[in-house]
Structure formats: structure tokens, C-alpha cells
């Protein structure tokens, strides 16, 4: 089933198309939500909320980007909103020092779960900006708008996240 057929089916409230959309993308989108939320339960809640929005707003999709990209954006927005409702993320964008926990593994053997664990150890601000910029491909301008922060703050948060991750990689001698 092509994206066009999927979209048209969802607009018609066709259950088969809606189910196919869920089966096709829910795993990818859940992994996305998990990077912004604290645990899988919260991520699944965000995922389902995002799917409700996706189904409700399908007629607004204009094929100006890939369907997956559009859905990922909705998931990011829902996850950020959940994050914002849970705590004041601006306060997390602090200068406070912290140390990552030690992961006993080689870089080239790093499993995705370990990477997730590593990224989750970052402060919320670092983690959010890193995920948005490095993984989702948002620009600093888009991040500043989404998180309601200055572009400079976004840049500095990303630089700090990079620095922390780089230090961790160096510490383990994994950059050789």
C-alpha cells in the first residue's frame, strides 16, 4: 500500500488503512517517543496520542514531505508537550555539571539499548536538543521555536551534549 493510498484510506476512515498505518510505523515512532520520554509507558502514551492526532488530521497532509517525516514531526511535538507538562524543561537547560555513568562495552559493539541508556543519562535539555538536531534533523531555528528557547541556547546545549558524549567515548578509548 503506497503512502497516497494510506492517506486516502485514513481520510475515508477505512479501518484497514488505519491499521496498516499503525503496523507500518508504530515501532519506529515508539522508539522516537522513547528518546524524549522517561520510560516506555510514557512513550506509548505519547505514541497513541500522536496516532489520534495523525488520524484526526490526515486530511491536512499535503504530500509536501514523506508521510513518515510528517508523522515523526507529530510524534516529536506530542513528546515535547508531554515533557513540558511533566516538568519545566527550561530549568533543565542549565550549566550544571554531571557525569555519565560508565558503560562497559566497546564502541563498535555498542548495542542500541546501551546507546539509549547513554543518551537517557544526559540532562533533559541536552538530550532533547541532541535528539532533535542530530537524529531528527531539525535546524536550530526550528528547535528554538519548538522548545521556545533562543537559537544560541539550542547551539550551546548541542555543543555540551556533544562534549559530554565525546568525553565518554574518549574515556573508553573508543575514538581510536
Amino acid at each position: 500500500m503506497t503512502d497516497k493510498e494510506l492517506v486516502e484510506g485514513c481520510i475515508r476512515e477505512d479501518r484497514i488503512a488505519q491499521k496498516y498505518l499503525w503496523d507500518q510505523y508504530s515501532s519506529k515512532l515508539l522508539a522516537l517517543c522513547m528518546r524524549y520520554t522517561q520510560n516506555q509507558e510514557e512513550a506509548e502514551d505519547a505514541l497513541m496520542e500522536a496516532y489520534v492526532k495523525i488520524y484526526d488530521n490526515m486530511k491536512k497532509f499535503r504530500f509536501q514531505s514523506a508521510l513518515e517525516t510528517w508523522m515523526r514531526r507529530i510524534c516529536v511535538n506530542v513528546s515535547i508537550n508531554k515533557l513540558r507538562a511533566r516538568k519545566n524543561i527550561f530549568n533543565e537547560l542549565s550549566e550544571s555539571e554531571f557525569e555519565l555513568g560508565y558503560l562497559d562495552s566497546q564502541y563498535n559493539q555498542l548495542q542500541v539499548n546501551q546507546i539509549m541508556e547513554l543518551v537517557h543519562q544526559l540532562p533533559t535539555g541536552y538530550k532533547t536538543v541532541f535528539n532533535l538536531f542530530a537524529v531528527e534533523g531539525y535546524s536550530h531555528k526550528e528547535i528554538s521555536k519548538l522548545l521556545e528557547i533562543d537559537e544560541g541556547t539550542s547551539r550551546s546545549q548541542l555543543a555540551k551534549a556533544r562534549k559530554v558524549l565525546q568525553e565518554w567515548v574518549t574515556k573508553l578509548g573508543l575514538d581510536k
Partner: peptide, 16 residues
Amino acid sequence: PLEHIAQTLKTHEVSP
């Protein structure tokens, strides 16, 4: 290594 982390996260999937 940072690019590796980003790519790994990008392709990561978790079943609900």
C-alpha cells in the same frame, strides 16, 4: 562515534 550514535537511534525500533 557521535554520528554512529545518531544513526543507531534513527533506525532504532521498539515494538509497542
